[in-house]
């Protein structure tokens, strides 16, 4: 809400800004796809591992739990998977995700796409969108851990390696999405 008011008061500067620095169109999906594929390939060649995102978040969560309740984290096998006796945040995926944060920002800056806003369909309110963003995130975090990875770690990485579980996972993601897409069409259309 606050953001909205802020924007309204800066309406004129915004219009000027929009004219001077128009948002660039997104890339041809196939070109972007080849770019992503080459990034993934370079991870295979250099490191012998794929990309990931939820793994880094798991490491951060596990580290946080271990900081607050060391004994609790010690007894939980899931957290133990992400903890090392060294600093657990000195981890490949954590650094990779920091890179993603930076890379996304760089791309956004050059394409004039960096701005505070809420992306949503035209028919829902900002607060509904925000509540469901958190809810969707919770489901995503839970589901990703059950599946042993998210879209980056399983679908993309495992997909390229023709991993059976990853392909089953990927098809399930699309199936799950299409299954309820119609019910929630108000959100996006």
């Amino acid at each position: 809400m606050v953001e909205e008011n802020q924007f309204r008061s800066e309406e004129s500067t915004k219009a000027f800004h929009k004219e001077k620095f128009p948002e660039q169109p997104y890339w041809n999906p196939y070109i972007a796809g080849i770019g992503l594929g080459l990034v993934l390939l370079s991870a295979f060649v250099l490191m012998g591992r794929g990309l990931g995102a939820s793994g880094a978040i798991s490491t951060i969560v596990a580290t946080g739990v271990a900081k607050i309740a060391p004994n609790h984290a010690q007894s939980n096998e899931f957290y133990q998977n992400y903890l090392t006796n060294e600093n657990p945040l000195k981890d490949w995926l954590v650094f990779e995700v920091l890179g993603v944060l930076f890379g996304g920002f760089i791309s956004g800056i050059f394409a004039n796409r960096v701005k505070f806003k809420i992306v949503k369909g035209p028919r829902i309110t900002n607060s509904t969108r925000m509540i469901f963003a958190v809810l969707g995130g919770i489901m995503m975090g839970f589901g990703a851990k059950l599946a042993g990875g998210c879209t980056s770690g399983q679908a993309l990485t495992g997909g390229a390696l023709l991993n059976l579980g990853s392909w089953a996972f990927m098809l399930s993601v699309f199936a799950g999405g299409y299954l309820i897409a119609y019910l929630f069409r108000r959100f996006w259309l």
Partner: peptide, 9 residues
């Protein structure tokens, strides 16, 4: 002696 960490996502 480092504990090997899971590589996956």
């Amino acid at each position: 002696t480092k504990k090997p960490k899971r590589e996956g996502c």
